[in-house]
Design a protein around this nucleic acid. Structure first.
Lengths: 240, 240
DNA sequence: GGCCGCGGTGGTACTGGGTTCCGTCCTGCG
DNA sequence: CGCAGGACGGAACCCAGTACCACCGCGGCC
């Protein structure tokens, strides 16, 4: 049920203190059987058998105990984006970064589904989740801004694409969570992100390679949705 | 400085109580000269000369006094979307809805700029603003979902477009706020939303009109950014 | 005119999240 | 053995938000 893998032997300094996991476990037991707002921090620490002070040593707020691994995942995403190569296609890169978040959810389907039902009911937790999602979005946008620097409206494009990627990811993630983790989350997210790449993808790196001129002919029924035309166009340009 | 227009004679039942405006004024005076977190609710009510109990009658929380008019604006946006005609172009419609929010900010530039500087500094206010923005986004997405019902991935498209519209709007809004309300906010938002419409616009109403076939020829240098191609394509299709 | 109901107001006390400060224990080390 | 430092616990505190009640001004009603 706990979020942090208990695999020992990692070189990362300290071993994960079991107290943190014990607090998460105690908190979720009470949240699920009694409700989030009906559970006080004192109840949690009493069940875990530790002092109240220790709770706030491990979690800056009561809400944080519901999202115990997002801090780590955000750090992973930041590192992933920082490790990008110069010739990576930016939109594809941020889509891959978003898949890191999905992976974290998929590692503990039962835990993720429980948390989903909690956040769906409690407004305070929804607000907290929004701030978490916002930090992911800002990380994506920061990366895209550097990649779009110099292009016209680079900052705008970065913000819009980051928002679209997050929205598509969350759409697929939530539909997977609603199904109690039964479906194929990976496929759902791939499908959703595909739409975003169809709309925004294939922006070249700033130094445009001056290739030979080329002519593309698109045949479209007037009135067809533009995004369908874009999909056709994309495949015609050889970026399928 | 207050947000609610004091125009009398509206048929909406009660006149706006001056106490609400007095609380907003007192709160912002203290927030600006002393900081948000360093100001207690008791300080505000003491300055306004009212009882502590009355503060929470007008504002459900301390954060709400910073966003005194978003509730009204959200209601206006919902009404605006509900009043849409069946043949409205959905993406254009949600862009117009987003412009309602801009109009609210532009009605009181000084107030909006002060609030911007507050929310920039205080994490708690940023989180609250996120939940407000989220409600706007959900309103847009709800409308788009109904319009895209029946289309493949209609829900996904609705969520992504709503997120993109909000991101573009906020990008332009924030850049205007950073300039202390000096630039042309309307033009900035129009420009930003134009990008979104270029990427997503012109989805036909569900019953596609079976017009005559037509041929569009696009000449593009291989390697050009896709969004440029989309812009060309859009103008070729006569949706400039 | 006296009485009553009622909505807006203020005051008081309480709950609970979050912080500060301090004391304690345990551990490793010179 | 003494000590330094870190993990833990506990008591007190601050403040946002809530519940409850007492007050007051006002219009209606008998």
């Amino acid at each position: 049920m706990s979020s942090s893998s208990a695999a020992p032997g990692r070189g990362d300094k300290a071993v994960k203190p079991p107290m943190r996991d014990a607090l998460v476990a105690a908190a979720f037991r009470l949240f699920l059987e009694r409700g989030y707002e009906e559970t006080t921090v004192d109840d949690i620490v009493a069940l875990a058998g530790v002092g109240r002070r220790s709770f706030f040593r491990y979690f800056p707020s009561k809400e944080d105990v519901v999202f115990p691994d997002h801090e780590r995942c955000l750090a992973e995403m930041t590192a992933f984006l920082a490790a990008s190569a110069a010739d990576d296609e930016p939109v594809r890169r941020v889509c891959d970064a978003a898949r890191l978040v999905l992976r974290m959810y998929a590692e503990n389907p039962a835990f993720s589904v429980q948390r989903y039902h909690l956040t769906k009911k409690v407004p305070g937790l929804r607000a907290y989740e929004l701030s978490v999602v916002w930090r992911y979005e800002r990380a994506l946008a920061r990366y895209l801004r550097t990649r779009f620097a110099g292009l016209g409206d680079g900052v705008l494009r970065a913000d819009v694409i980051a928002a679209a990627v997050v929205a598509a990811h969350n759409n697929a993630l939530r539909s997977w969570l609603r199904s109690d983790g039964k479906g194929d989350a990976q496929a759902a997210v791939d499908h959703a992100l595909g739409h975003v790449q169809a709309a925004f993808g294939a922006t070249p790196a700033p130094p445009v390679t001056q290739g030979p001129e080329d002519v593309v002919v698109v045949v479209s029924r007037r009135g067809a949705p533009l995004w369908r035309v874009v999909q056709e166009l994309e495949s015609a340009l050889g970026r399928g």
